[in-house]
């Protein structure tokens, strides 16, 4: 733990060495998420809502997704850019350190530029809250935290699939991108607008519905599923489970493959 903290601080120090470039790239991140925000705003302006969701509610979903995703890109860059480490020999260096590999991957690459994305996502969320005049309770705040945390690990799990694939072929990364960026694109809207196959995919395979949409829908007082409230609180656990499974696959399939074939 002390190692992780120290390693991340080190990353910030490194980034601080190139202040101008860092600032530029943070702004670029702002603009990029801002582009998505613009898209949602234009759509909501044209259609006034989506299914039984109001424009503000859609903005709320959008904010949660962008904020969480930017957090993942910030802390999980070592996982999402894993194919570079294999090519560049950095993974070998990680194998030579007596710290868990996943901890090293997270600690070695803190991408603070994603703060830009977080800001825009957070602003969208705040704006939605203001317009919705949500009645906040401790339970709802807890739900929001759980939803973010669960989705955070779910997305890291998706990154891990990419990382596992990159042990086998660096070229097929593009194909796996669909999981992460496709997941973000599709699930920034509540899952109930999609037909059954996509709903099943996002509920039971990549469980954005459980981690994010169900708790958020309860916060908005429009529950997606008719389930007891404790199950709503428990649903984000699906994200942790997803991450755990993918971490195991990464280790057992990916790392083992690497060590037996080498590079």
């Amino acid at each position: 733990m002390r190692y992780l903290y120290h390693a991340m601080r080190m990353q910030l120090k490194c980034a601080a060495q190139y202040r101008a470039s860092f600032l530029m790239q943070s702004i670029a991140q702002c603009v990029m998420v801002g582009g998505d925000l613009l898209a949602v705003t234009v759509l909501m302006n044209r259609f006034r809502g989506l299914g039984h969701w109001s424009a503000e509610e859609i903005l709320f979903f959008f904010g949660v997704m962008q904020l969480t995703f930017a957090l993942c890109e910030c802390f999980g860059r070592g996982i999402s850019n894993f194919s570079y480490y294999i090519g560049g020999g950095e993974f070998d260096a990680m194998l030579l350190r007596p710290q868990p590999l996943l901890v090293q991957m997270i600690g070695n690459r803190l991408d603070a530029r994603r703060l830009g994305g977080m800001l825009v996502g957070g602003a969208a969320l705040a704006m939605a809250c203001l317009r919705l005049r949500l009645h906040w309770t401790a339970g709802k705040a807890l739900l929001l935290a759980l939803a973010s945390l669960g989705s955070f690990f779910l997305i890291l799990g998706l990154f891990l699939i990419e990382a596992t694939v990159s042990f086998f072929s660096v070229k097929s990364i593009e194909m796996v991108n669909v999981l992460t960026y496709g997941g973000r694109q599709a699930c920034q809207y509540p899952v109930d607008i999609y037909p059954r196959p996509l709903r099943l995919l996002f509920t039971w395979v990549a469980p954005f519905a459980l981690c994010m949409h169900l708790p958020v829908s309860v916060i908005l007082d429009k529950p997606l599923m008719d389930v007891p409230i404790w199950q709503v609180y428990a649903a984000p656990l699906a994200g942790f489970a997803f991450f755990a499974v993918m971490a195991l696959v990464w280790r057992r399939v990916g790392v083992t493959h690497y060590r037996s074939t080498g590079s």
Binding site: R46, G51, L198
Partner: peptide, 18 residues
């Protein structure tokens, strides 16, 4: 294809409102 499909369903849902 995935993006196209998701977007197509998104617009189906959006247009369903009006």
């Amino acid at each position: 294809a995935f993006f196209g499909l998701v977007l197509a369903y998104l617009y189906t849902a959006l247009y369903a409102g009006g």
